[in-house]
Design a protein around this nucleic acid. Structure first.
Lengths: 210, 210
DNA sequence: GTTACTCTGTAACTTTTGTTACATAACTAA
DNA sequence: TTAGTTATGTAACAAAAGTTACAGAGTAAC
């Protein structure tokens, strides 16, 4: 854990803070698909993402999902919503998009370190700031783009975060994350295939030249 | 200014912090419609909202607008995006929805006080947290609701924040904020009128029983 | 008043998205 | 191999939202 911590956060946290993280943090590895946070749960640890990708989802009253954004490995790890102040329930679901390594910090430390370490404070503010920008991005997508453009962006993003032009998703998977129906996705994917941008297969899609 | 500050923030900030705010803060009054922040601008003061309502808007590349949320008077004042860390440009536009009174804090103080005053730190975190929830709310609306439901919520919200069942907007105004066309809004408003929920007039709408 | 402008109402049409239904292909487990 | 399951393709239709066009009401300036 110590090497991973230093590799990802060593350049931004003071040594004293790194030491404290080693003291109180617990290392955790989870596999792809693992549900890390569920809507309505109380959160008492804050995850520092060391490697892997976590997807953050929103759900409405009817159980319909919507992908909000991906948390990526390394320094850009934003903290889990609402974990910091008060004991508020999680508004989102977090699922490991890939195998993921994390360091879990008890939430009380977050407050303590905020007073103590300037670098920690900056990290927290910056994480908030980044997450807000990700949310803005999501809003831009759903408010200003049509489904075909959203789908294209989704495929690009998926490919980018896994660093692989093969996307292991069914049409239904994609439909859930974009909050639309499978038929709509199949239709639009077929159009993209006809344009030569992708290749469709059972259970996976190859990105060609988007 | 001092009375307004104490009335709105006195119960949550330490006296020493209140004193500092009085030292460095500047009082500002703006009229309805005043553009407080424009997209792309750099921000170097953080506003504490004392009274009034500010609307926060997003714009896409084609100049199409979308209402994100309202900042309301008093303690729930969230800070302007991106104002705290680094010199990043504003991603949003802020316009006074009503006549508004503010206290402007130089941004350097934000960092200084974050180390010094626990209450300030809590205020900043809580503001971030609230704003994130408002963004989630916005996402819920545009992702999960149809335009008629969004319109209804919009009218309710407008009525609530002004504490008045008369809404002084044209159909075009509403169309801009919900990012749709005037014809669509006129159509849906007429439906709501036929259902007895509102009364339509030139330049204003009366909310009856939503 | 007359003129110009803004706002609203509405029809007719198009595009986009969502729904239902069904056929077939591909895989899985017995 | 066969039966059952899951994934995909596609047609046909419905609903929602966006567009174009125009008429007429209300308002403001002169």
């Amino acid at each position: 854990m110590i090497e991973e911590l230093k590799a990802n956060y060593g350049h931004r946290f003071e040594d004293a803070l790194i030491d404290e993280i080693i003291q109180v943090g617990t290392f955790k590895e989870v596999s792809e698909g693992f549900k890390m946070i569920e809507i309505g749960e109380y959160i008492n640890v804050m995850p520092l993402l060391v490697s892997g990708v976590i997807k953050i989802l929103r759900e409405d009253n009817d159980g319909d999902e919507l992908l909000l954004y991906f948390l990526e490995q390394g320094k850009t790890c934003a903290m889990t919503m609402g974990c910091c102040i008060g004991q508020t329930k999680s508004e989102i679901r977090a699922i490991a998009e890939t195998d993921t390594k994390l360091i879990m910090i008890p939430v009380q430390k977050m407050e303590e370190w905020s007073g103590k370490y300037k670098s920690w404070r900056h990290f927290v503010f910056e994480s908030y700031h980044n997450r807000l920008n990700e949310m803005l991005d999501t809003i831009d997508n759903i408010a200003f783009l049509k489904m075909d453009e959203r789908l294209l962006k989704y495929l690009q993003e998926k490919s980018r975060i896994s660093n692989d032009n093969k996307i292991n998703s069914t049409h239904q998977d994609i439909a859930y994350e974009l909050h639309t129906s499978r038929v709509v996705i199949s239709r639009l994917l077929k159009k993209l295939e006809n344009l030569g941008k992708i290749q469709l297969h059972r259970n996976y899609i190859i990105i060609k030249n988007i």
